[in-house]
Amino acid sequence: MTSSEMTVADLIDLLSGCDRDAPVRLAMNPFFPMAHRLERVLASVDETGRTVVYLAEGRDTDAQLGHLPPEVAVDLTWQSPVQAPPRRPRRRAGGK
């Protein structure tokens, strides 16, 4: 059975190349991207009896940190890169 779900081993492999002192954040909701503080890692069993690991945000009011940085949302392909609109020539005094 092939699964598209990330495994604990996949996560460990991805995290092994990261700075061990860097804080961990959850990027959530592609339509309104927000950053959340990670508080707990919890193992449980799903309805099929398979072990599942959950990453949970904190319950504190400051667990949601605000909007996800735009470059992160672009890297996740949740948003397209945004370019500034073309500049129009400035109007001069006197309406010309």
Score class of each variant (00 low, 15 high):
Glu71Pro: 00
Ser16Trp: 04
Ala93Met: 01
Pro33Arg: 08
Met1Lys: 00
His67Val: 01
Asp10Ser: 03
Arg90Thr: 07
Cys18Met: 06
Val53Glu: 06
Leu42Ser: 11
Val8Leu: 07
Arg90Glu: 03
Met1Asp: 00
Val45Cys: 03
Pro89Tyr: 15
Ser44Leu: 07
Glu39Asp: 13
Gly58Ile: 05
Pro33Thr: 15
Val24Ala: 15
Arg92Val: 04
Arg92Lys: 09
Arg90Leu: 12
Val45Trp: 09
Gln83Val: 05
Arg59Tyr: 11
Ala73Glu: 04
Leu55His: 06
Val53Lys: 09
Thr51Ser: 06
Met1Ala: 11
Met34Ser: 14
Tyr54Phe: 01
Ser3Trp: 13
Arg90Trp: 13
Asp62Ser: 05
Pro81Cys: 01
Asp62Asn: 11
Ala84Cys: 04
Leu42His: 11
Pro69Glu: 08
Ala35Ile: 02
Val41Trp: 10
Lys96His: 09
Leu15Val: 02
Ser4Ile: 09
Trp78Arg: 07
Arg92Leu: 00
Gly94Gln: 03
Arg59Phe: 12
Ser80Tyr: 12
Ala56Asp: 05
Ala84Gln: 09
Val24Cys: 15
Leu14Ser: 04
Arg91Asp: 03
Leu15Asn: 02
Ser80Gly: 02
His36Thr: 02
Glu57Gln: 15
Val72Ile: 12
Thr51Arg: 07
Ala9His: 07
Pro33His: 13
Pro69Met: 04
Arg20Thr: 12
Arg92Asp: 08
Leu14Val: 07
Thr2Leu: 10
Gly17Asn: 06
Lys96Val: 01
Lys96Cys: 01
Glu39Tyr: 05
Phe31Thr: 00
Met34Gln: 15
Arg50Ala: 11
Ser3Gly: 10
Glu47Trp: 13
Glu47Met: 12
Leu14Lys: 03
Ala22Leu: 01
Glu47Lys: 07
Pro69Asp: 06
Arg50Thr: 04
Gly94Glu: 07
Pro81Trp: 08
Arg88Tyr: 08
Pro33Gly: 08
Met34Ile: 01
Gly66Lys: 02
Ser80Asp: 06
Gly49Thr: 03
Gly17Glu: 12
Ala63Ser: 15
Arg50His: 03
Ser16Asp: 07
Asp19Glu: 13
Arg50Asn: 09
Ser16Glu: 12
Met1Gly: 14
Gln83Thr: 06
Thr48Ala: 14
Thr7Cys: 06
Thr2Glu: 10
Met28Cys: 10
Pro33Cys: 05
Met1Trp: 15
Met1Cys: 05
Val52Asn: 01
Cys18Arg: 15
Glu5His: 14
Arg90Asn: 09
Asp46Lys: 00
Ala9Phe: 02
Val53Phe: 12
Lys96Tyr: 08
Arg91Lys: 14
Trp78Asp: 03
Arg50Leu: 03
Leu38Met: 07
Arg87Ser: 10
Leu15Ser: 13
Met28Ala: 11
Pro70Arg: 08
Ala84Ser: 06
Arg20Val: 06
Glu5Ser: 11
Arg91Ser: 11
Asp75Ile: 00
Glu47Ile: 09
Glu5Gln: 12
Pro69Leu: 02
Trp78Phe: 05
Ala27Asp: 12
Asp19Ser: 14
Ala63Phe: 10
Asp13His: 04
Ala43Thr: 04
Pro23Ile: 00
Ser16Phe: 08
Arg25His: 07
Ala93Trp: 08
Arg91Met: 14
Asp13Lys: 08
Asp62Arg: 08
Val41Ala: 10
Ala9Tyr: 02
